[in-house]
Design a protein around this nucleic acid. Structure first.
Lengths: 107, 107
DNA sequence: TGATTAAATAACAATATCGTTATAAAGTAA
DNA sequence: TTACTTTATAACGATATTGTTATTTAATCA
């Protein structure tokens, strides 16, 4: 995952409500009406959080009749962990800057 | 790491500038005056980003004369990855809610 | 059809974030 | 001391985020 996308995904995960939703979905798929009573915020607020999680493909929705079930995209979550432990190698970028004289000599 | 602290740390990582700083510090320790020319934002802006990274102990600062060197706390970064792949088990919490009748029956 | 339920979207307010420029603080050196 | 360099902080504006209530959309059922 490129660094911009990784940052965007981490930002989505970096909210206590959304991270708890992810932890809940790690146990089993849940419909919105089950998620709402778990938190002390409104249904629309939960809906917006789910929308943000969906926007980075951390969760998937499936409509079943009146209900919408959300499930965790474990692969995406693993990808985040992997990308974090394999950050892009900036050695070359650092060399470029040094060659261009963009780096001061702080001895 | 508890879920609140994890969310806070992910939020700090969830910014493209800060994540790039982390990637740079993964190569070697850098002083602020080296970091500034790598980005097209002001020195105070970089300083604020470093302050946020410091606030969750992702980086450590060391003053050397006039210069302040920042280094990556790799242990903390690994901890984030580990916590992400070992989210707290919400099974019990889910049971509580079910027993209390807080979960609707969406069949 | 019309009523009901579940979920998403719209509109808005309060607060947080991130950038800027100006200034302060800390260290070096003439 | 005074001047200079490096970094942090202050003050402020623009924008993003997160919550609210009201409304819309989608599906079910009498």
């Amino acid at each position: 995952m490129n660094i911009e996308k990784l940052a965007e995904t981490l930002k989505v995960l970096g909210d206590p409500t959304r991270l708890q939703i992810v932890a809940m979905l790690n146990i089993r798929d849940l419909c919105v009406c089950e998620l709402v009573p778990m938190f002390s915020i409104s249904q629309p607020a939960i809906s917006r959080h789910l929308s943000r999680l969906r926007s980075v493909e951390l969760v998937k929705e499936t409509r079943k009749g009146m209900w919408v079930y959300y499930s965790l995209n474990r692969q995406k979550l693993e990808e985040v962990g992997f990308s974090l432990s394999h950050l892009p190698d900036m050695t070359e970028r650092l060399n470029e800057l040094r060659v261009k004289g963009a780096l001061p000599e702080c001895k």
